[in-house]
């Protein structure tokens, strides 16, 4: 187990180094460096001023030298400034991460619980299995941004029950929750399909096993058989989905946060890329990647705790 964790941490560090280098290169190819933007904003700047500013900020250095200097600073814990928000980057990053983790946590919980319940329903009632399959295929094929817009139209525009986006103005848990309902519902519905399908398949396979027949012979109720006997064994593939889906959850957060105007990691990356804020975009991207990979690792560890056979 320790070897698994250490090996994966090394892999995570290598991936982050590769991603940051590749992204740095890609961003070098994006339109407009900060001095170009300053030139556009202030027509009084001369060519000499621009050259002086470039030298001052190290922008006259070659791309790889700038990358190494940036990476060294980040490793020392100096995250630099966000040009877009005009504050130190760390001041925007951590609150955004918190907001995203709240959104993802609730969505994941809801998706897993609803997905497993749907799967269990399909496994317990033979007639319901195709219905569950159909729901899963529909949910999986639904573009999250479309679902978000439809929910806004229904609950915010037509019914007027919930806010269309943004954050609560007044403090209070109930008020904050009102703003969370639609984004969480969007993400949860799109993500529950994988849980439903895997729970259905795994439970169906377990319910055909000999130990289930023995349990029936003992006279146990169907409910006890499903949840006490079949489910613990069927939980393993469900946790696998958890491990595989961390990336798609973070991707989903980008879309939902953009639609519902929630300041989180996804919207931060999007805004930073659109606003040519390279430093912030790169930091946010790496942080999102780090969180995703740590989540995957946590799910893998959980899987080995549930099923000791995997560790051998």
């Amino acid at each position: 187990m320790l070897r698994l964790i250490l090996g994966r941490l090394v892999q995570i560090a290598a991936t982050l180094a590769l991603v940051s280098a590749a992204t740095w290169l890609a961003m070098g190819l994006m339109p407009g460096d900060p001095i170009d933007l300053a030139l556009m904003a202030d027509p009084k700047l001369t060519a000499e001023d621009a050259a002086r500013l470039r030298a001052l900020h190290g922008l006259d250095q070659p791309l790889h030298a700038r990358y190494l200097a940036w990476a060294a600073a980040v490793l020392r814990g100096e995250f630099g400034h966000s040009r877009l928000f005009a504050v130190p980057a760390a001041q925007v990053l951590w609150p955004a991460l918190g907001s995203t983790l709240v959104l993802l946590g609730w969505s994941l919980l809801l998706a897993a619980v609803l997905g497993v319940l749907l799967g269990a329903w399909g496994a317990a009632r033979r007639r319901a299995a195709p219905v569950v399959d159909g729901i899963a295929i529909l949910a999986q094929s639904t573009p999250s941004f479309w679902l978000g817009i439809l929910l806004v139209i229904l609950f915010a525009v037509e019914l007027g029950w919930l806010p269309a986006g943004g954050l609560a103005d007044s403090p209070g848990v109930a008020e904050a929750a009102r703003f969370l309902i639609l984004p969480v519902a969007t993400l949860a519905i799109v993500n529950l399909a994988a849980y439903a399908r895997h729970a259905l398949a795994a439970l169906q396979a377990e319910l055909g096993a000999d130990y289930i027949r023995t349990a029936r012979m003992k006279g146990l109720s169907e409910r006890a058989i499903l949840w006490r006997h079949a489910f613990p064994n069927a939980a393993i593939p469900v946790v696998t989905v958890l491990a595989l889906d961390a990336g798609s959850l973070v991707s989903g957060a980008l879309v939902t946060e953009t639609i519902f105007a929630r300041p989180g990691m996804g919207k931060l990356i999007y805004d930073a890329v659109m606003g040519n804020d390279y430093n912030l975009a790169l930091l946010a991207l790496l942080l999102a990647a780090l969180v995703t990979m740590l989540a995957t690792l946590a799910a893998d560890v959980a899987q080995r705790l549930i099923d000791p056979r995997l560790s051998r």
Partner: peptide, 18 residues
């Protein structure tokens, strides 16, 4: 490595390349 990364944020960065 590619599979473990969040795809959409990376796609957004790559799609913005000029």
């Amino acid at each position: 490595g590619l599979l473990s990364l969040p795809a959409l944020p990376l796609l957004v960065v790559l799609a913005a390349v000029d």
